[in-house]
Amino acid sequence: MSSSHAIGHDHEHAGGHITPLPVYFAVYGALLVLTVVTVAVSYMGLPPLQSITVAMLVAMVKATLVGAWFMHLKYDAKFNVFTFLAALWFMASFFVFTFYDLASRGMVNEVTGQHVLHKDMDEQKK
């Protein structure tokens, strides 16, 4: 429960760090702008890879804003931040290793890598 460098009238309080109202509204404004941006980009017709990259980058910025200010992580005990990041780390390990399998099927053996669609299954049954 400590705060050292907040904008505005920052002071120690029994209720922990009190974020000034303008900060909340600024964060909210940024979130709205980013939402508009991400929707606008989706109409630009980017190729899928670029489209998802932009969308995810914007989402991450938005998530950081929510986490840091709305969820007070910026002023919170460092261990809570660590806990949150640890969760993301373990999520990432789940994604990366599972995806590595999906993506590398067929790198050694072509036939093993084919994900047969159910329609092919039907054909093969005939």
Binding site: F90, S93, Y100, D101, R105, M107, V108, T112
Partner: peptide
């Protein structure tokens, strides 16, 4: 312990490279 689960799947049809890493 979180990043070794693939050793249950060496012959399951998991990719050979993935098996090696696990």
């Amino acid at each position: 312990g979180f990043i070794i689960w693939g050793h249950h799947m060496f012959v399951s049809g998991q990719s050979e490279l993935s098996g090696t890493v696990f």
